[in-house]
């Protein structure tokens, strides 16, 4: 988007006017869809969060900010918020770090056959549905009869509790989701790596720069816009985690994997309190906006745009 302003506003000719109108017409379908499916629901969400009653009651009563008060006073909700933040932190950090490492490795070996195969294997989980992946891992991670533990035992390690213990369940889910999402992010970062002009590397080579230094001083800054993009996308998607929680743990054990979206679902449909669910939805909205804003703000200084 260019912000340049011309000093004298030119008078629009007939042709230009038509063109401008055409622009609006072309944008209209997208804008209308956005209003109907995003803006209106958003406003209704905020409006509904001020009411009590259940989903099927004819006239829910106005309760003001009571739903928000209930949320802030509820220990369970605090736990849910912490879980969501911890989960997001684990997934985003693991995903980005692993994606950069794997992408760099693949990039350095890009002319070998092995590379194609590895790339395919890493990308495959991304196209499987979350439901299948979760069901699969529910069995793999079973602490008593699961495959992962029998491997661990065969290698001489103790069994890991995975989803059975409140201490490890959230991390286990994060691990599955990192495994599932990794391929997509690797692909994005690979694309960024391929766009780095080779003359920069050649210059570094002439100066005899050590490999690690090249990586941190050249590679990372050059792909930083992509890293920013991936971290924003990964953050938002991990804030919205639902399917895997719903299938693998149902928020348990001991509420240790209950995250915001799952909480919203439970209150809206299971416990019949849509007001409280909407209030939690508003909080989710605020969180996602704030974190995205922060990410852009903080990284503005650190991201290098070509």
């Amino acid at each position: 988007m260019s912000r340049e302003k011309t000093a004298v506003r030119p008078a629009y000719g007939k042709n230009e006017k038509r063109e401008r109108l055409m622009g609006y017409i072309l944008a209209a379908p997208a804008v209308i869809l956005l209003v109907v499916f995003t803006v209106y629901p958003l406003i209704y969400l905020i409006y509904r969060s001020l009411f009590g009653g259940n989903l099927i009651a004819k006239d829910p009563d106005f309760v003001g900010i009571e739903n928000y008060q209930t949320l802030f006073e509820s220990e369970d909700f605090h736990k849910v918020l912490t879980n969501t933040l911890v989960y997001t932190l684990i997934t985003v950090v693991l995903t980005i770090v692993l994606a950069v490492i794997i992408a760099s490795w693949l990039h350095s070996k890009r002319n070998r056959k092995l590379n194609d195969i590895t790339q395919t294997f890493i990308f495959t989980p991304h196209i499987i549905s979350v439901v299948s992946v979760s069901t699969l891992f529910l069995w793999l991670m079973d602490s008593k009869m699961g495959f992962l533990n029998s491997v661990l035992n065969a290698l001489g390690f103790d069994s890991y509790t995975f989803l059975a213990s409140p201490d490890t369940a959230l991390f286990s889910i994060a691990l599955v989701m990192v495994w599932k999402g990794l391929g997509y992010y690797v692909l994005l970062i690979m694309a960024a790596l391929q766009n780095i002009p080779s003359n920069v590397y050649e210059a570094a080579e002439i100066d005899d720069t050590p490999k690690l230094r090249t990586f941190f001083k050249i590679t990372l800054p050059m792909i930083s816009p992509t890293i920013l993009f991936t971290s924003v996308v990964a953050t938002i998607s991990s804030f919205k985690v639902f399917d895997s929680v719903s299938i693998m743990t149902g928020g348990g054990p001991l509420n240790s994997t209950n995250t915001l979206v799952y909480y919203i679902y439970e209150y809206a449909y299971r416990y019949g309190k849509p007001g409280q669910a909407c209030a939690a939805g508003v909080i989710l909205l605020i969180f996602v906006c704030a974190i995205t804003f922060l990410q852009f703000k903080v990284s503005k200084k650190r991201v290098y745009y070509q």
Partner: peptide
């Protein structure tokens, strides 16, 4: 005591 994993109906089917 065998405690199945998962919540609600999932723990039952496990």
């Amino acid at each position: 005591l065998y405690l199945p994993e998962g919540d609600d109906y999932a723990s039952n089917s496990a």
